[in-house]
Amino acid sequence: MKLERDDLLKLYRNMVLTRKTDESIIDGIKTGRVVSFFHSGQGHEATDVGGVTFLRKGDWAMAGVRGHGVGQAIAKGLAPREFLAEHCGKATGCCFGWSGFHTANLELGLPGYWGTVGTTFPITLGLGIACKKDGKGNVVVSYFGDGASGRGTLHEAFNMTSIYKLPVVWLCENNMLAINMPASEAVASKDVADLAYGYNMPGVVVDGQDVVAVAEAVMIAVERARAGDGPSLVECKTFRFRPHSEGGKMIRGYQPIPEEEIAEWRSKDPIVLFRKKLIEQGIAANVELDKIDGDAAAEIAVAEKFVAESPLADPERMFNSLYA
């Protein structure tokens, strides 16, 4: 698909809103508003947003662990306030406030979140079976990290999506760290994309800091899936700007990651890079992008107030939720 100006600005907006929501959660942890833990997705915005923004209604976006799926949720149309409220244990959260940190909205194509790394592989397989049965051309874009690529669930799900030719795009966010375990020591093939060929599907590598590159590659894979040509794997090389979990340290193996290296990663901030390109290529003026930034900040401020004024999760509702 060719991205028009509005599409490009939408990508920018979604990335900025994702970052600001992420920042608000981190701030909430420091100030005690947030009742759960958080695995910040800062640095991943281009992949989180780029792979989902141009999906259509009926398509599923299955988030991995990082960022608790904030980017995918926002790109699918979830209001940040619902994400924030959920993390603050409020009844106005997208899961009514007792999940701690989950994101789900079936209307928007968010099937639910799970914190166990690699759990999403077989669930994605099932969503893919459903999409194929529906016959409406819907697809699943399913995120996982280099860490999850160590799970056996990957093998079973990759194999079965391929043999059944299911409309699935596997999207690997390779940020080179699984908690603290470096991918260089944990991923035998180095490029996760190399795994694809063993499963008879294409595997490609793109720059995960370049939101247009991610969107372009994923949408090609999506069109392929819609056409009935089966699954593919898009590996996005990216960086995790923050520790595995808030409050932790930036560690690789058991040693601190050097400050210069973190600074080098941060110099590839996908939002800053995209903003620069939009201006250089004459697509948007500074003032216009500033307005998007300002609107996002305002939306988060309003959302924070909304969350603060929201009631806590309803115990009765929770206890009535075990069975349908």
Partner: peptide, 11 residues
């Protein structure tokens, strides 16, 4: 090591 992995495998 990165050769042969670009998007041409998809399109």
């Amino acid at each position: 090591p990165a050769s042969g992995k670009d998007i041409r495998r998809l399109i």
